[in-house]
Design a protein around this nucleic acid. Structure first.
Length: 462
DNA sequence: TGGCCAGTGCCTTCAAACAC
DNA sequence: GTGTTTGAAGGCACTGGCCA
């Protein structure tokens, strides 16, 4: 897009120059600012009514630019009791507290709690303002106050600067950005879907490889274990204990919550085993006085298992390929030395669905959020194993697949990052007048955009 | 090894303090 | 008196220190 021919200075570096015919206005000149409130939680008939009551959590959970429903609703008497105000459709709902900056356009009349404020259009174009605020999150946060958490006061929001083109131009910018960002959003969604599919594929490939092997024509037999299903006829079903030579565990020591540098000792955090690779950067530096207490050094070619965590994470594993030399285990992680088996085949098995199903059955604990596995139960987990040569082939195939998968995932993540940067840059350029879109027309055959914000939101809703 | 419990981070809720 | 701001209190989901 071409630039405007005549520009003028603004005192705000983050907005920069604006077109000569634009004004640098304030939010209160374009919108009525409405604060929210909360009815008393102890009075039942204030709740479960038919009025949507938006909180910052509702906004941050949205996957789109529009809000229609809240997690909790209030009644008319609840609304009256706390003095909250209903705002009309097309108002912008902005979270102004913990966190500042999540926003969406209201799809219908609704109210908010005190963590949000609504901007009701009074001369400003809702969709244009939505795009402007979406690139102004950093500036909104800079104006927040408070020590426990930041809050943007009503006065700060009222005086928040707004580049204000003529209304018809705000409408054109909104129309242009709707069209262009929709195209970018499609590309971002495709890349995110690809990342999700790659993750699913990794899980499926592992589960298949450790239960069916590489030969699709191999004759199968019933494993006799519900969670393993059918396995190749020549595979053996055994308990993990058949392959465990040694289980070691570390010691709980005082440590600073920063990774150990060269010359320092570190203890692994339980979060080191959350991915499908051991993340040795997830460690804490052992304080000098405690260095003599560390007891179990991380060695190469060992299976690392979390013996205690939430139900989803208990039994999570990692595999140490190298010996970093200065890292030790805490009391929550086991270091398992395997024998008579390709160790990485067993690691692959612990990433499969059948392993997780078995762990789910044996984990226990007084607290539902903190579950343990007993060593004996872990050792009794059933696994199907092919001959050693086939184990090695499966592991090699897995490494080849993982390398390709990692490469594709990295490319897709990079693409998402670049597309998001491009989206922000385009919005920023359009709402601060760096590109002139007045003559832009939607390509023939594309959706036409109606001229007022209310109809615009309905178009999106449809 | 298993469990208790304090700490942490991120939030929501709510009422006292404050400003107008 | 009313509306706004502030921060304490608490919920939730972990995380980790410590001890029987």
């Amino acid at each position: 897009m071409r630039p405007y021919t005549q520009m003028k200075d603004t005192p705000l570096a983050w907005i920069g120059d604006i077109p000569y015919h634009w004004k640098l206005s304030k939010a209160k000149r374009l919108f009525k600012i409405v604060s929210g409130s909360t009815p008393s939680s102890s009075i039942d008939n204030y709740w479960n009514g038919d009025i949507d009551w938006i909180t910052p959590a509702d906004l941050s959970q949205l996957g789109n630019d529009y809000v229609e429903f809240s997690a909790r609703r209030i009644t008319k008497s609840g609304l009256d009791s706390c003095g909250a105000e209903l705002v009309p459709r097309s108002s912008i709902i902005l979270s102004t507290r913990a966190p500042i900056g999540s926003l969406a356009i209201a799809m219908k009349s609704m109210c908010t709690n005190q963590g949000c404020k609504a901007l009701v259009p009074e001369g400003g174009h809702a969709v244009y303002a939505y795009y402007f605020l979406s690139i102004a999150t950093e500036q909104l946060n800079l104006r927040g106050r408070g020590t426990t958490f930041l809050e943007l006061s009503t006065d700060e929001l009222k005086s928040f600067p707004f580049p204000a083109p003529p209304f018809i131009e705000q409408q054109k910018i909104a129309q242009f950005l709707d069209y262009e960002t929709a195209k970018i959003d499609v590309l971002i969604d495709e890349q995110k879907r690809l990342i999700g599919l790659l993750k699913e594929k990794r899980q499926a490939v592992i589960s298949h490889a450790v239960s069916k092997g590489l030969n699709p024509d191999a004759p199968m037999k019933d494993s006799g274990v519900e969670w393993l299903g059918e396995v190749p006829e020549h595979w053996k079903v055994a308990s993990l204990k058949a392959f465990i030579r040694l289980v070691e565990s570390g010691t709980s020591v005082n440590a600073a919550d920063t990774p150990a540098s060269e010359g320092e000792l570190g203890v692994l955090k339980t979060s080191a085993v959350y991915g499908d690779e051991l993340d040795v950067n997830q460690n804490k530096t052992v304080v000098k006085e405690e260095e003599s207490r560390v007891s179990c050094q991380l060695k190469a070619n060992r299976l690392i298992v979390s013996r205690m965590n939430t139900p989803e994470l208990v039994g999570a594993t990692g595999f140490s390929l190298t010996n970093p030399g200065n890292l030790f285990l805490p009391d929550r992680l086991w270091q398992i030395t395997l024998e008579n088996v390709e160790a990485q085949f067993i690691f692959m098995f612990t990433l499969s669905k059948s392993y997780r199903s078995q762990i789910k059955l044996v984990c226990a604990g007084a607290s539902s959020s903190m579950q343990n596995i007993a060593q004996e139960d872990f050792k009794n987990v059933k696994v199907a194993v092919p001959p050693l040569i086939e184990q090695k082939a499966i592991v090699e195939e897995w490494h080849r697949f993982k390398s390709n998968s990692n490469q594709l995932t990295e490319q897709a993540e990079k693409a998402v990052e670049l597309l998001q940067e491009r989206r922000s840059a385009l919005i920023s350029a359009a709402v601060t007048g760096k590109i002139d879109v007045r003559d832009w027309q939607p390509p023939a055959g594309s959706d036409t955009v109606d001229s007022n914000a209310l109809v615009q939101t309905e178009r999106h809703y449809g």
